[in-house]
Amino acid sequence: MKIIVLVKQVPEVADVKVNPETGTLIRDGVPSILNPFDELAVEEAIRLKEKYEGEVTVITMGPPQAVDVLYKAMAMGTDKAIHMTDRIFAGADTWVTALTLAEQIKKMEYDIVICGKQAIDGDTAQVGPEIAEILRIPQICYVRKLEIDDNGKHVIAHRENDEGYEVIRAKMPVLLTATKGLNEPRLPNIMGIMKAKKKPLEVVTAATLGVEEDRLGLKGSPTTVRKVFPPPKKAGGIIVEADDPKEVAKKLVEFLLQKGAF
């Protein structure tokens, strides 16, 4: 089985602070991590390989330092990596990100393409399905549980939906996006970290990808960010100590009634 895993390096969003004066993000000193949902995808790919044999290739598009997440994925157990890095790729929105990754995937053989349901910095959940469309393969998003059918040709996946989940069967090749519950990702061990350094790592640029520059990066992106600003501040909330629970409860209910909350 040939599996492609797509990963992204993201800032540890929990550590991101906002400069109160400028409203801009303070990213200095914020660690970069492998997107947690992508970690689920990496783990699942490795488990499939362990069970059905084959090869797992991990791909990221990102600046030079994003190579770290490729080494992490290889330390966990993926076989090789592709780093798509070029200044021309910078500023890509979801559509161009999907296009860039898909153009690379088109050159490869695969049964399954798997990625996280969303990246924790942008939270869009769009790149996976957009890639599936460009590759013209089916997609199953928000997968919590994955099995391969006995015939070895179909996947059977539990797809989370608003009420619970649905069990979906699709023929490979297929694109899957991983969500919480799919597995518990392993921690890379020392052996894995050592081995990762020797695994093949290919670098792909706009030139080697063979896509015209004006279809890539910011230039190719149909969406543009006009403005970034801090979320509207709530008019300072009321904070009370609950010395007298009865009294506090009364005050709260009064407040809620006044706001017409129920």
């Binding site: 559509w95 996976g128 399905p129 997609q139």
Partner: peptide, 23 residues
């Protein structure tokens, strides 16, 4: 921006080569 809406919209956007803003 439901489970189905977020599954469908990017697929339509990619088929028509359009931008899409999430959530």
């Amino acid at each position: 921006a439901t489970s189905n809406g977020r599954d469908l919209a990017p697929r339509v956007a990619a088929r028509l080569q359009l931008g899409l803003t999430a959530d």
